[in-house]
Nucleic acid binder design. Sequence first.
DNA 1: GGATGATCTTGACAGTGACAAGATCGGGCG
DNA 2: CGCCCGATCTTGTCACTGTCAAGATCATCC
Lengths: 218, 218
Amino acid sequence: MNTAIDPGSRASSYHHGDLREALLAAAETLLERGGVPALTLRAVARAAGVSHAAPAHHFGDLTGLLSELAAVGFTRLGAGFDAAMAGAGSEPAARLTAMGKAYVAFARAHPGLFVLMFRSERLDASRPALRDATTAAGLALRTAIARTRPSATDDAPLQAVARIAGLWSLVHGFSVLLIDNRLGGLLGALPPGDDPDTLLAAMLDAVSIEDGGRQVAD
Amino acid sequence: MNTAIDPGSRASSYHHGDLREALLAAAETLLERGGVPALTLRAVARAAGVSHAAPAHHFGDLTGLLSELAAVGFTRLGAGFDAAMAGAGSEPAARLTAMGKAYVAFARAHPGLFVLMFRSERLDASRPALRDATTAAGLALRTAIARTRPSATDDAPLQAVARIAGLWSLVHGFSVLLIDNRLGGLLGALPPGDDPDTLLAAMLDAVSIEDGGRQVAD
DNA sequence: GGATGATCTTGACAGTGACAAGATCGGGCG
DNA sequence: CGCCCGATCTTGTCACTGTCAAGATCATCC
């Protein structure tokens, strides 16, 4: 009668063996399938094949479970940044595009997780796992952006901060609007064959004009 | 015994008189006070001083109430756009800044409402009031952005769409991150005296470079 | 003045988070 | 080897929620 998502490992009768990870995996499946509202302590317990109170033992309460799951997401996002920066060349504009693409690609690949990661009213930001993961990902993002500008040191403080905040806002807002399907009309106005990736590249290209003097001028 | 937020108008015993508006007002108060989780059919009913099932008569279910409230928000946002465009001059860069400021100002003035407006899983986008309000606000936003570029007609389609999507994404992402307090570190790095408005202006200034040839070059 | 329909209340049911108490199991200590 | 202790999981319960059904109240129109 085990409706568990992962019935493998060592499902003894009582002690599960690795229930904590199984619960997180089940939660992620439910999240991507039904969004944040589907993330219920009891639903997660059902999906993992345990009693309704089992998750509380590992995560305390629902906020704890959601926070740990969000931490997984931030860790994964940070890893995506690192991979994108490692794969990109040394040219600033290319690095910037790679970073933006990594951000949006993560959001599109795991929309439920991405939404959860920024639903702060359901999370406990002071939880160590979440706090560490967010700061790590934020640091990776900021350094990645900072390195996409050749001569960043001579920027005025306001301009330097504006560059980071602007790019972050751009890719974050685009991800949110894309997931929410708010860009339907705009995407429909694109030339045939152009997808969101093309649009993102064009957006980043427009912003990166202030780099070495690259011009759009067709 | 009436714990209603608005005990005025004509609180007869049974028929409220304008319960629908009173419920929406109570809901907005609860929303701004406790965020989306505080928006409960029963809590709204309590705040309005009516029985727990009264809201269902006017809005059908919780999704209906949230959708109507979100519609109020979109209408207000659209009005903010119009006011900003009316108050701005004719210079493209100034109009763009005014539009962005109006967007972010609305989000900061009504953070709960703004968050609700984009929590699509709790809304019914097909509800007439919400559908009309969103399309009206979206149209106002797009035309406002389009008019911030002098020679918009000779843009390539991709660039034209990228300009609109980019600016929308920028102001939306900034609003979201600001409300979520994700920009704490960056705001702390600003020169003393600079606030989020200054940062937004700098961000928009950097983006608007591709306008008439305005340069940052200090 | 009475019927009719809109408006609001009362009551009930299933689902949820949270807590308390108990059952089960594994590992370490005698 | 036997036993105890703590971690793990279950069962039971309570308050709260959304939703529905049925009834009470009132305004309006004929």
